[in-house]
């Protein structure tokens, strides 16, 4: 390749400059990431040193006695993100299939635009809507209904028990799912469009239905990118702050029920940072930040490993 391009002096200088610029841009990200990790680790170190692994496993959060355990925020973060993902992925998949396979152009264009707009709404708006409109609906309608139906199923009962406050992990998870749908759907739509028409048309020629084309041709072809879209959504759900703060109930009591209030890592930090009045308290909050960082990192690592395995399977 190199030999094919005729070399010019100015081009060499331009190349070198470009290389340096691109390299530093990439390096900047790494340096930033490292700096964040290191500074949150240093800030949270007193907490980790003092509480050890108990910080991860204890459900106590007492700023007065300066005893801190991150179990409830960690649990709340993971559960709300998981609910969001479970609800958002099928919907986003449906949207992407509709836009690329089903919808006529005059419908696809405005729908695409609407999805992109949805992605641009500030999270505080989702929070306000959640608190003023959605939470009352949950409290009056969905929560009691779930308690009466799923709450009666043995095994599931503890997950759907408790008074219907309308604020809690399920409400937060549903709001989060609405927030991440546009991200997942937009990426899925873009990659479905990249499926070569020849592949798609050959499948149709073989008599495949639309569904079979999507499921057996488009999806396997774009598998990597679809997983990428899902993990992008997950990353966003894990770190979302304002919307969650409004509808999660902000309670540090451990409760397994999805209808019960809880708190998340990001919500706890946002709520308590301004008035964290002792060094121990501040350190505990920074330690929470570090944990969120680690969780996000693990999620991404998991995604990469999954993709590697998928790539190997694909090669076989």
């Amino acid at each position: 390749m190199d030999q094919a391009i005729p070399k010019r002096r100015s081009g060499a200088l331009g190349d070198a400059l470009f290389r340096v610029a691109a390299f530093s841009a990439a390096l900047l990200v790494l340096v930033l990431l490292g700096a964040i990790a290191i500074s949150t680790l240093i800030g949270g170190y007193p907490t980790f040193a003092h509480f050890g692994f108990g910080f991860l496993s204890k459900a106590v959060w007492d700023p007065v006695r300066r005893e801190f355990g991150a179990l409830v925020p960690i649990y709340g973060t993971l559960v709300t993100a998981l609910i969001a993902l479970v609800l958002a992925v099928p919907v986003a998949f449906g949207i992407a299939v509709f836009l690329t396979e089903v919808a006529p152009r005059r419908l696809a264009v405005p729908t695409s635009a609407a999805i992109e707009l949805l992605a641009g709404i500030p999270s505080i708006i989702y929070g306000m809507w959640g608190l003023f409109v959605f939470a009352p609906f949950m409290a009056n309608t969905l929560d009691p209904w779930l308690s009466d139906t799923l709450g009666m199923v043995p095994g599931l009962a503890p997950l759907f028990s408790g008074p219907p406050l309308g604020l809690g992990m399920l409400t937060a998870g549903i709001i989060l799912s609405i927030m991440i749908v546009p991200f997942i759907a937009a990426v899925m739509r873009d990659v479905f469009r990249l499926v070569p028409p020849a592949l798609r048309e050959s499948a149709f020629a073989l008599g495949a239905t639309r569904w079979e084309v999507v499921w057996h041709v488009a999806l396997p072809y774009t598998r990597t990118a679809v997983w990428g879209a899902i993990f992008l959504g997950l990353g966003r759900a894990l770190g979302e702050t304002m919307a969650v703060t409004f509808v999660l109930g902000n309670s540090h009591d451990f409760n397994i029920s999805l209808l019960a209030p809880s708190t998340s890592i990001a919500a706890t930090i946002a709520n308590e940072f301004t008035e964290a009045d002792s060094p121990a308290y501040l350190s505990a909050l920074i330690a929470l930040g570090f944990i969120l960082f680690v969780i996000t990192f693990l999620v991404l690592l998991l995604a990469k490993l999954l993709l590697l395995r998928l790539a190997k399977q694909g090669a076989r």
């Binding site: 106590v60 007065v64 006695r65 703060t245 109930g249 902000n250 708190t263 946002a270």
Partner: peptide
């Protein structure tokens, strides 16, 4: 059991952000 502070370990209830919350 609880003590005094700008935030405490609440034995009961849900938390709203700010007076408006």
């Amino acid at each position: 059991k609880v003590g005094v502070g700008t935030s405490v370990a609440w034995p009961a209830g849900i938390g709203g952000k700010g007076n408006e919350g």
